[in-house]
Design a protein around this nucleic acid. Sequence first.
DNA 1: CCTACCGATCGGTAGG
DNA 2: CCTACCGATCGGTAGG
Lengths: 193, 193
Amino acid sequence: MAETEISKKQQIMEAAARLFRDRGYSATSMRDLAKAVHLQAPSLYNHISGKQEILKEICFQNARRFAAGLERIESDYSEPEDRVRALIEFHLEVATSDATSITSFNDEWRHLEAAELEAFRQQRKSYERRFRSIIEQGMQQGIFRTADPAIVLYTILSSIRWVYDWYQPERATEIEQVKAEVIGFVMAGLLEK
Amino acid sequence: MAETEISKKQQIMEAAARLFRDRGYSATSMRDLAKAVHLQAPSLYNHISGKQEILKEICFQNARRFAAGLERIESDYSEPEDRVRALIEFHLEVATSDATSITSFNDEWRHLEAAELEAFRQQRKSYERRFRSIIEQGMQQGIFRTADPAIVLYTILSSIRWVYDWYQPERATEIEQVKAEVIGFVMAGLLEK
DNA sequence: CCTACCGATCGGTAGG
DNA sequence: CCTACCGATCGGTAGG
């Protein structure tokens, strides 16, 4: 049945994301993964073509998600300040709504094979370039403090990353506070005066 | 000869740190490591007791380094603002002087075995507690903006981390600029007004 | 979806 | 410091 097929593949993908996050791609065996979804290892191959495919899907699915988010924010807002604020909020939203998949995306992409690794790097580079040009615009307009845009970009992106490792669903009540404070902190570092 | 023994072990440790950074602990085989230092795999065991020992040494050596740095800064400075500034500069100095070893320390410690993992987590927790209490002091004194000290701590620590991944020795001329701008950015987010 | 099984590679030891 | 080699485990296939 197509319906159960899809659902089982989804289960496998989610279990894989969790295992990749907890142990890393290389330390996760297909037998570990099979156990997590109550299958024997060979049965996995009825749903997926291999370990590498799982990683590929996780990485590129998230790359598309970030590209789409950036697209949306660029069309919803025109001021650099609003755009950066929305981007930080977007990153934090993703971090708290789908933390497991994102930590694979953040940390395990280096285990992609050569061709996919290259494509992934290019997509990330493109994302960074667009984010950076928003920062540059804000500096040119005198809204942001003048600084090296690349340094500012990486500092902002990194400053968000701890949330992926730290966030647990039980802390749901705190998440709005976390968002507000991280945004406050970063914007204070960014804005002129 | 003791002298050559020490030097060869050092070569192994440095090659391992580089491989762990590039491929991760699990994806690095003892045969990879042997090749990097021009030995056959079994010969490694004349210098080290096993793969796990290498990771243990990298992680705890760096834990001691950070503990010592914090100790020194706490005795050299008394004002929270000076202490935080010095801590950020210290992290950036370590990142640029010994990037390979530190990325293992940052990312590969989760592959420590149970007993060491527990000890490592405790040491890190202790470091974070001391750093956080400096932040709390600054807030109580009205020097830092009032916020959740834990959120501020993790945001600061993360905002420094990209340098480990990004820094390459050829960029030595830029490093003073990177330091100044990261410190400027973070302190602007932290300071009242 | 399973059992049976493949060749490759793993960390590490024996013995010199 | 090497050759020879160990048992365990890896990702994945055959065949039903």
